[in-house]
Design a protein around this nucleic acid. Structure first.
Lengths: 163, 163
DNA sequence: ATTTACCTGAGTATTTTAGTAGGTTATTAG
DNA sequence: CTAATAACCTACTAAAATACTCAGGTAAAT
């Protein structure tokens, strides 16, 4: 179990999806605008999330992504694992031969730690996150900002035309 | 709290130090040989460990590093933090202004997760690690291999001379 | 048909990780 | 004293991961 910014991006995006999934599928460009994550990077992440059956996609106008199951059945650990495909916690690639054919000193140790962190993040569902007060508040603000965002995009376009 | 290979290297090295600290200071080249971590990389790591007062150094022949306090007073979380100087778990640099002056959706979330993982790793001391059976066994093997290592180095030297 | 938006793959920039090289300084064993 | 040892320091480099861009697809709705 590795914990890097990549996993954070994925969890943030999935949480955004969970927050807006009640009105049909959510497009990646919406998530991109709200969470300030580049569209192409989201596409890469969601390709992996889809392969792990965490989301389903709907093509065509009005399409986007949906959670593949209810919010209380999707856990943070699953999301992090989906985007960090190199799940080997030990650096030994699970082969126990990290150091000249033998297990390294902290091999078992890191397996244990990794398991425990994994268990911990596996108890936290999207549902629990959505219920958090701080998340709800930030989400509220982002929703209203979304409309302003549309305006500011027009500003950008006109600025581009003007020079 | 980030969890990468860098932190693992540091914990492995500190554990090696803990295992061999009963006969005076331990040199980085000893650790390098036993744990197969490059000397210069160890130097970088130990510079940080020293700044965080986790180890003390003794210069000159027979010198090396010592744990700054007893093994049951040094915790895995402290080691990981020492080498991952960018301790900001949120990516917002703790300023809560990660997204255009406002907190991002998962800001508080990642702070919480980070705290809990941190608490978890902060309960695990070097003393506990040293007591583990698997660690003792690997350490045993590495100690006997150390003597062989000296031989194989001579082989390398003679090989270099010959060809 | 055309738009929307997913999908794919290739490519780039930045950062982090890991290791090199080449020193200086402090210490000690001989 | 001096030669060896090992910490300490700086700068550089190679490789990998991360974050992002671009240029094209393809599928499904309007």
């Amino acid at each position: 179990m590795r914990l890097t910014t990549k996993g954070r991006y994925a969890v943030t995006a999935m949480l955004d999806l969970a927050l807006h999934s009640d009105h049909g599928p959510v497009s990646l460009s919406d998530i991109s605008n709200r969470q300030a994550i580049s569209l192409s990077y989201l596409e890469q992440l969601f390709a992996k999330l889809r392969k792990q059956s965490l989301v389903t996609s709907v093509r065509g106008p009005g399409g986007g992504y949906r959670l593949s199951r209810s919010r209380d059945e999707i856990f943070v650990a699953q999301i992090v694992d989906a985007v960090n495909e190199s799940v080997d916690a030990t650096g030994c690639k699970g082969k126990s031969d990290c150091q000249g054919g033998n297990t390294c000193l902290t091999h078992h140790l890191w397996c244990d730690l990794s398991d425990q962190i994994h268990d911990f993040l596996n108890q936290i569902s999207l549902e629990q996150l959505v219920r958090r007060n701080d998340v709800r508040q930030v989400a509220e603000r982002q929703n209203s900002e979304g409309r302003q965002m549309a305006r500011s995009n027009e500003d950008k376009i006109s600025a581009a035309i003007v020079g």
